[in-house]
């Protein structure tokens, strides 16, 4: 009896894992907001990243902070994307021009406010890089909103167009 149960268990575990993997990957393929299977979360070369990884924030918490005016959003995408549409009140700091433009932007960031960087696309290379960059500048409360522009729109949260925040 014990042998039979153990034998059953031995095939059941891999079969359950396999079924879950197939269903999960299949579902991920057909959904609209599919997540890339493999993505490099840490785009920075080893050694240049801040010792603390930047925490990622969920859309729900970001929305709550937005409603309570407790956070400032920084758009890491190129300026043309920002002008086409951005989170209401967000400042534009394209990653490519971060070093040149950061001081103009930094001046506009109130003290002791949560900074949320965002870009677009689930692998969110820019917002993570920008968040680390801001951390290195000395800001303490920096979060990255993964796939920010897409999820913000999906939740029908306030947006703005043009080059004003």
């Amino acid at each position: 009896m014990l042998k039979l149960i153990l034998k059953n268990t031995l095939w059941q575990i891999p079969v359950i894992l396999l079924i879950s993997a197939c269903v999960a990957l299949g579902f991920n393929q057909i959904r609209n907001d599919r997540v890339p299977l493999i993505c490099q979360w840490d785009q920075q070369p080893q050694g240049t990243r801040s010792p603390e990884a930047v925490p990622i924030i969920s859309i729900d918490e970001a929305a709550l902070l937005f409603k309570n005016n407790k956070a400032i959003f920084i758009d890491a995408r190129p300026e043309s994307f920002y002008n086409e549409g951005h989170i209401k009140g967000a400042l534009s700091l394209p990653w490519q021009e971060a070093e040149d433009k950061c001081f103009d932007v930094v001046e506009k960031i109130p003290e002791d406010i949560r900074i949320i960087t965002y870009c677009d696309g689930a692998n969110c290379e820019l917002c993570d890089k920008l968040a680390v960059f801001l951390c290195d500048l000395g800001f303490e409360h920096v979060n990255a909103l993964i796939n920010g522009w897409t999820v913000w729109n999906r939740h029908n949260l306030p947006v703005n167009t043009g080059n004003s925040p």
Partner: peptide
């Protein structure tokens, strides 16, 4: 996507496995 973020924050898995795990 948000769950993958939570998994990433744990800093336990190699980055290449985070999304697969979260899916």
């Amino acid at each position: 996507a948000s769950f993958a973020g939570a998994v990433y924050n744990y800093q336990l898995l190699p980055e290449a496995l985070i999304n697969l795990f979260a899916i």
